[in-house]
Amino acid sequence: MKSTDDEPVVEVSNLTKSYRLYPKPIDRAKEWLSLGRISYAFPKPALQGISFRLNTGECLGVVGRNGSGKSTLLSILAGVRQPTSGKVHVRKRPFALYEIASGFHPRLTGAQNMVSVTRLLGLPPELLEQQREAILAFSELGSDLHRPIREYSTGMKARLAFSLFSHLEPDLLLIDEALSVGDAAFQKKSAKRLRQLIQENHRSVILVSHGLSAIRQICDRALWIDRGVQKAIGPVDEVLERYQQSN
């Protein structure tokens, strides 16, 4: 799907997502054996009536309590989960930077994992080669890049993941709490890199975070979701104020 400058990069309208839960594991087997004539599933709504647009060079912060549906929203935008109903158009390729560090192979080195993940994303190896030095410099991993990932700390893995993803020329970055991992200095550096991507390179970002200061620093607008329902969308300060008052 191609995008023109006039079209929003992300267009979501009346999005709903329900998970199908079963009282007992055997109930799903019974449903399958009935060839779907009887359903034992009950719906657990995760998102209801979510609508927003995201334009080129814009950052949308998403806030809400734990279990409010923020991560489900990102996984739908990443094309990982299927919505139950509604419209979801993502016109530029989304890069989902959430917990991707857990997908690194523990026995492979940081450098080998970079190649492996880049391949899985379907990106050309040349792109990684072009950006290798910049990624290495940004991650500050030095010679550790050639050590197996199992020897990395959580912060080191997060640094590698953020450095890699933010240098692979993403048009649309979906970030879930990735900035809250690592030391304060790296968090500050990551926030600066994101602002650079948005303001200078005109990339689009959706940032899910409990750290409201990060959203204030980086985002133009904010979306507040509570128990799967969209409570507010608009300028960051307004939405965050309402969100904080509700807590």
């Binding site: 995008s3 299927q82 919505p83 993502v90």
Partner: peptide, 14 residues
Amino acid sequence: SEPPYGEPDVQIAG
């Protein structure tokens, strides 16, 4: 158990 909505309209690039 199924919400009374239509089929989702999903288009994800890439």
